[in-house]
């Protein structure tokens, strides 16, 4: 078969069945028009060069869009992607943590737990990210192909054409007053972390020592039964912290009410923390012995240092947070 026939085939095989024959016929007659009656292969090549890459030519014959998502839907697509990706990532992380601790058998070291959680977390986020990206892109690519309207104007995020009235819907939040989503997710994450530490303190919090089998958990810092006496009030604090995070997420900026709720939760949390910490039998006896030997101080000195130190740090942080909240709420 000669070059011209191959060229025509290369073009037409990329076209819809019904047009193939007609376009092939027209192309052949056009190419022959451009050639002398008795042509050489070089002349044929020169003509084909003028027509260009068969893929481009075939593409020009087709009306179908040659992009996945065009300018009409791109903005909406990007907005949704930015909105959905972090939400999906956080939800998948939280479910992963929950699944893990429900199925926790208690025979792993803390390093093992942390490493496997980080590994699983990264894997889960990548997996969920790829899934989200894939399905959203597929959906938009399909919308792009089903939309027959000729109007090519980009759409606003609500899938309608932009009008000046859309401006009224945009809340005007000064930068200094805004509550970022990162902040909210960060505080949720913090709640999840300390709640885990609280309920699994006998397996997680304590003294670690390098041994023959890597790092070993020598002795827990707290008496778990003393710690768990307080569970109803701790659960209440957890609930309040989650409620506060959701409230902040919907309020989107610091107001007086947000600052008040924030202070209430902060003060309550700190109080509960202090009450638990000053319980005389909170610290594990083995833990106290271990540390007194290590630093050669008496048990009462040690208790004072640890408890006093932690309480002052937490109180300072809580006070700072409360003041910061009111300061932001007062900003104009």
């Amino acid at each position: 078969m000669n070059l011209i026939e191959i060229y025509i085939q290369e073009v037409t095989r990329r076209l819809p069945e019904k047009n193939r024959e007609d376009i092939a016929l027209e192309l052949r007659s056009t190419i022959e028009d451009m050639l002398p009656a008795d042509y050489s292969e070089d002349e044929a090549k020169a003509v084909l060069e003028k027509l260009g890459d068969p893929v481009t030519l075939a593409g020009n014959y087709q009306d179908r869009p040659r992009h996945l998502i065009g300018s009409r839907y791109f903005d909406v697509y990007l907005t949704l992607l930015k909105m959905i990706l972090p939400i999906a990532a956080v939800i998948s992380l939280i479910t992963m943590l929950a699944e893990y601790f429900i199925g926790y058998s208690g025979d792993q070291t803390v390093i093992g737990i942390i490493i496997s959680l980080i590994g699983k977390g990264i894997a889960r986020i990548i997996e969920v990210g790829i899934q989200t990206f894939f399905w959203l892109t597929i959906v938009f690519a399909m919308i792009e192909r089903m939309d027959n309207r000729k109007d090519n104007k980009p759409l606003a995020a609500c899938l309608k054409k932009w009008t000046p009235d859309d401006l009224k819907k945009i809340p005007n939040i000064p930068r200094k007053k805004a509550i970022s989503k990162t902040e909210v997710f960060g505080s949720l994450m913090w709640t999840a972390i300390w709640a885990t530490l609280y309920f699994y303190a006998n397996q997680l919090v304590g003294v670690y020592q390098g041994g023959n089998n890597g790092i070993e958990f020598v002795t827990p810092a707290f008496n778990q039964n003393v710690l768990l006496q307080y569970w109803p009030i701790v659960v209440l604090v957890i609930g309040l912290e989650i409620a506060l995070a959701l409230y902040k997420l919907t309020a989107r900026q610091w107001t007086k009410n947000v600052a008040i709720c924030h202070s209430v939760v902060e003060v309550l949390g700190t109080l509960v923390f202090i009450v638990i910490l000053v319980h005389p039998n909170l610290l594990n006896y083995d833990f106290i012995t271990y540390l007194t030997n290590l630093f050669s101080i008496t048990a009462s000195q040690l208790k004072m240092w640890i408890v006093g130190g932690i309480i002052s740090i937490f109180t300072v942080f809580a006070a700072f947070n409360v003041i910061d909240g009111f300061r932001k709420a007062g900003t104009r």
């Binding site: 027209e26 192309l27 056009t30 003028k50 260009g52 481009t56 030519l57 020009n60 014959y61």
Partner: peptide, 12 residues
């Protein structure tokens, strides 16, 4: 004129 544009244009 780019010929790969012209013939498809005629069809359009």
């Amino acid at each position: 004129i780019d010929q790969s544009t012209l013939y498809p244009l005629l069809r359009r």
